[in-house]
Design a protein around this nucleic acid. Structure first.
Length: 514
DNA sequence: AAGCCGTCCAACCGCCATTCC
DNA sequence: AGGAATGGCGGTTGGACGGCT
């Protein structure tokens, strides 16, 4: 931002055009060749003309500017110039810390809704905010710092829980049939299963990569991050951020990143408490079962990198708030990630209409859709006895005791609305279980087995988050990597007890640790 | 001094939604 | 009803600039 002021100064210095130049702007100096509308940087003379025009005629009818003022700019360009630079109520100069924090908050809630964000920041333009955000993102990605500070994550996450419809703007339900219209097919995904059972059935075969192997990678290697699965790239969709997750406006591209960050964190804690990172069964492929309930390809379970490691995301582009999707990285929220987070990897998040396919009308009115997570995993209703019985595995029965006992939603007391979409939301991904070995795709597990009991995934997630929030990190959790602790993140200045003054490991330094 | 590189930001582009005719 | 015009939005690009070597 340092350059901003300098540039503002420069801008100011050319703010008062002399009358002669104004005249030039109206004549040859301004006209493009052959009367073609001029492009490129605006001159002060042109600005003066535009200001004059707006004074006389007011805003709007921008195409008339050319006619009335002789300014050889298209209406669009005029509008933009006015809105972004000439409006008298514009606040110039760098963003204040308050504004910056507000932007982070707003982005957490809204995603890439720059215009809406701008409306919340008087005197600021969407373009300014967008530029700020994009450069900020790049900076944070380079530095390996989570994009959202934990307080914002939690704030938004909690807010999304409290506010059932707050982030759910249902106005766009028309998009629910989006897929049908476009006739998308998602290879490897049993759409019928989705429609009939509310389950995503994914066939790992399609990508020739098993959930187990992914899991294995995700838990044991930082490289999973870079695995870009074969992808389907539907034609670029307009307004992806809105249409990809219809009826979830403001929830997917806003909540998801936070939830992901949070889930990454929570997941990591679970993983660590399970000691999975160190004692993870190296022979998963032989027993063919993931030790932890997960729907293959479910977002944000395996390794904290939703974009690259999950089969379903192999057919899915999560339109996230512009680059906001901080790929988890060492010292960040999730599992080890690429040492060199690439914007490309974000950009190439695979696009998928899957969610919309899932989003049958009745699904769209999920009373508690928190975004992609719900969109993917919301189970309309358990279908009677067919409600998949959890496949009990010893592997998953290792939830730390403190979680069960301390949980405000003790699974033993789990009497909440099991049908609530909320109960299937974020944590569903966390825990959805797809048997990998030869199991029918119908055998997804919607619950996590904990100590022999079935609990809703949401419970686990909520338990973890609340536990951490309320009580901090339990003493009995041994952080095998102090620098992965939440308290060691950039936002906290690396000041936790375990890893005081440690810098997040980045790049090869980190990789070499594994 | 020159070249390289990263940052910043103004402006453009393409698309969609709404309004107008 | 439907096509054109207009406005709005988000993504992207290209140039200016500064720092570093």
């Amino acid at each position: 931002m340092g350059t901003t002021n300098k540039r503002e100064d420069k801008k100011m210095s050319k703010g008062n055009p002399d009358p002669a130049s104004v005249e030039d702007a109206k004549t040859d100096g301004n006209l493009g060749e052959g009367g073609i509308l001029k492009k490129g940087p605006w001159t002060s003379a042109e600005d003066a003309i535009l200001v004059e025009y707006v004074k006389k005629h007011g805003e709007g009818n921008w195409n008339a500017v050319q006619k009335h003022s002789g300014l050889s700019r298209c209406g669009k360009s005029c509008r933009l110039r006015w809105a972004n630079h000439l409006r008298p109520d514009l606040k110039k100069g760098a963003f204040t810390p308050e504004e910056e924090h507000r932007i982070i908050e707003l982005h957490a809630k809204m995603g890439n809704k720059w215009a809406r964000m701008a409306s919340e920041l008087p005197g600021r333009t969407d373009n300014e905010i967008k530029n700020y955000w994009n450069t900020r993102i790049k900076r944070l990605q380079r530095s390996g710092t989570p994009i959202y500070p934990p307080d914002v994550c939690l704030q938004v996450y909690d807010g999304s829980q409290d506010n059932h419809m707050g982030t759910l703007e249902m106005a766009d339900t028309q998009h629910c049939d989006f897929l049908h219209r476009d006739g998308f097919e998602v290879p490897g995904v049993d759409i019928n299963g989705v429609l009939n059972n509310g389950h995503i059935s994914y066939s790992p075969n399609f990508f020739d990569i098993t959930a187990t192997s992914i899991l294995k990678q995700g838990l044991s290697s930082s490289r999973t991050h870079n695995v870009m699965l074969p992808t389907m790239h539907p034609p670029k969709r307009p307004r992806e951020s809105e249409t990809l997750f219809p009826a979830l406006d403001g929830s997917v591209d806003s909540c998801l990143p936070m939830i992901d960050q949070f889930l990454d964190y929570t997941r990591e804690k679970v993983t660590e408490s399970f000691n999975m990172s160190s004692s993870f069964d190296p022979d998963l492929n032989t027993n063919g079962q993931a030790p932890f309930s997960v729907i293959s390809g479910s977002h944000a379970f395996l390794n904290g990198n939703s974009s690259s490691s999950e089969p379903i995301s192999g057919a899915m582009k999560l339109e996230l708030p512009s680059l906001q999707y901080s790929e988890t990285r060492p010292g960040s929220w999730g599992m080890p990630a690429s040492p060199l987070p690439s914007l490309e990897s974000v950009d190439t998040l695979i696009q998928s209409p899957l969610v919309e396919q899932i989003c049958e009308p009745h699904d769209c009115v999920s009373p508690r859709s928190n975004g992609l997570l719900d969109a993917i995993l919301y189970h309309p209703q358990p279908k009677g006895p067919k409600m998949n019985q959890p496949q009990q595995t010893s592997d998953v029965s290792v939830i730390p005791k403190y979680l069960v006992e301390s949980s405000p939603m003790n699974p033993c007391q789990m009497d909440g609305d099991p049908n609530s979409p909320l109960a299937h939301s974020a944590a569903s991904i966390f825990s959805e279980y797809t048997p990998v070995s030869g199991s029918s795709m119908d055998e997804h597990q919607s619950v996590v087995t904990m100590l022999g009991r079935d609990i809703m995934p949401e419970t686990l997630h909520r338990d973890l988050s609340h536990y951490v929030i309320d009580k901090g990190i339990p003493d009995d959790i041994v952080f095998t990597r102090a620098d992965e602790s939440i308290f060691d993140l950039g936002w906290f200045g690396h000041n936790n007890e375990h890893g005081k003054n440690q810098q997040p490991l980045l790049g090869e330094e980190f990789r070499s640790c594994y």
